[in-house]
Simulated assay, not measured.
Amino acid sequence: MSYASDFVTEIPVWGYGLVFLIALSIVLISIPIVKRFALQWGFIDQPSARKVHQQPIPRVGGISIFLGTTIALCAIFLLNLFNVLSIELHSAIWSVVLGSICFFLIGFVDDSVGLSPISRLLVQLSVSSYVWLADVRIEFVTIPGLGLTHLGWLSLPVTVIWLVGVVNAINWIDGLDGLASGVSGIAATASFIICVYTGQYTAALLVVALSGSLLGFLYYNFNPAQIFMGDGGSYFIGFLLAGVAVIGLVKGATVTAIFLPFLILAVPIFDMSAVIVARLRQGCSPFLADKRHLHHRLLQAGLSHRSTVLVIYAIALWVGSLAITFVGMPNSLVILGGATGLLGYMSWKAWQSAR
């Protein structure tokens, strides 16, 4: 399989490391400031019957994730490191960045004053449609019996559904300390590895910056969490991952390329899909919050908070490793084997603790 590079020359490994460290450092430094801001202005997530935490916790940690990612990227482009400005970057790259900023603002407004599900969805659809006009498009799908099929005008609804769907999938899985940030970090890392291997170096810059931000945030967000990302954070993360999947993974018209994003984001996508189906089967609104999510079911089965999160991490790591294997990366079977062993071990430990 051959992939076309969107950069003339590669970015050195230390360059990606620099982007990662800038994002990581900004998040680690800014979280205490954001916590004070949240406490002062009342951006607090209160305990409730549906939620797991037992005390009020600041809920706008997504500000730090947003700042870490965007500042790291701006530093690379404004300083013209690695000679990036001499390379004609596709408009889709900037569209994904701008779209993720817009989604962060949508989420932050929702965290601040609250938006109705319908108004929130309409704004999300509008931004995603604009991004499609800016050439962030899914143009091929695989249809059983027909194989690879060009979408034509259907590209718009398919792309919009993908972008909005992933954003809300990440948002919905944000139900336990460290769960959404860890699963998203694993997805971002898998996307980064695949983008670099397939020559999509610009897209790789986006997700390595996100990875650094998420690792820094996880330091404060893992159980017991000191801060939550809020809708602003989950929307920003979801759109960036979904956008990179379109411009960095689904570049070639191949079945494997189109299947990769679904593998990398399988955990939040499956969780959201299963919850929607269960709600509709019982005649409930798909937007009605409840305790049908995978993490709720694992808790009900007797797993501890941390065990539940770690088991889901292991599942996310396994499907991410499977995606890496599908692109034919050298030694990927070793990675997949290790992830399989880890998943088996974590499942066994969880079963033992639940007995």
Rank of each mutant, 00 (worst) to 15 (best):
residue 236 F to H: 12
residue 298 L to A: 10
residue 276 I to G: 08
residue 178 G to E: 02
residue 169 A to Q: 09
residue 289 A to Q: 04
residue 171 N to Q: 11
residue 169 A to M: 08
residue 225 A to Q: 09
residue 174 D to S: 12
residue 189 T to G: 11
residue 292 R to E: 11
residue 185 G to A: 05
residue 172 W to C: 05
residue 305 H to G: 03
residue 213 S to F: 02
residue 206 L to K: 06
residue 219 Y to I: 15
residue 298 L to E: 09
residue 260 L to R: 08
residue 293 H to P: 04
residue 210 L to H: 05
residue 283 G to T: 15
residue 239 F to H: 12
residue 209 A to R: 01
residue 276 I to Y: 00
residue 187 A to Q: 10
residue 245 A to W: 00
residue 214 L to N: 03
residue 224 P to R: 12
residue 219 Y to F: 14
residue 301 A to L: 11
residue 261 P to I: 07
residue 240 L to C: 04
residue 243 G to H: 06
residue 250 V to S: 06
residue 233 G to Q: 10
residue 180 A to N: 10
residue 170 I to V: 15
residue 234 S to W: 00
residue 285 S to Q: 14
residue 206 L to G: 04
residue 210 L to N: 11
residue 287 F to A: 14
residue 273 S to I: 14
residue 201 Y to K: 13
residue 191 S to V: 01
residue 261 P to H: 07
residue 223 N to I: 00
residue 292 R to Q: 13
residue 247 I to W: 05
residue 241 L to F: 00
residue 281 R to E: 08
residue 287 F to K: 11
residue 267 V to Y: 01
residue 166 V to R: 03
residue 262 F to A: 15
residue 225 A to V: 07
residue 233 G to P: 03
residue 296 H to K: 10
residue 218 L to Q: 00
residue 218 L to R: 00
residue 176 L to V: 12
residue 250 V to E: 10
residue 267 V to M: 00
residue 249 L to V: 10
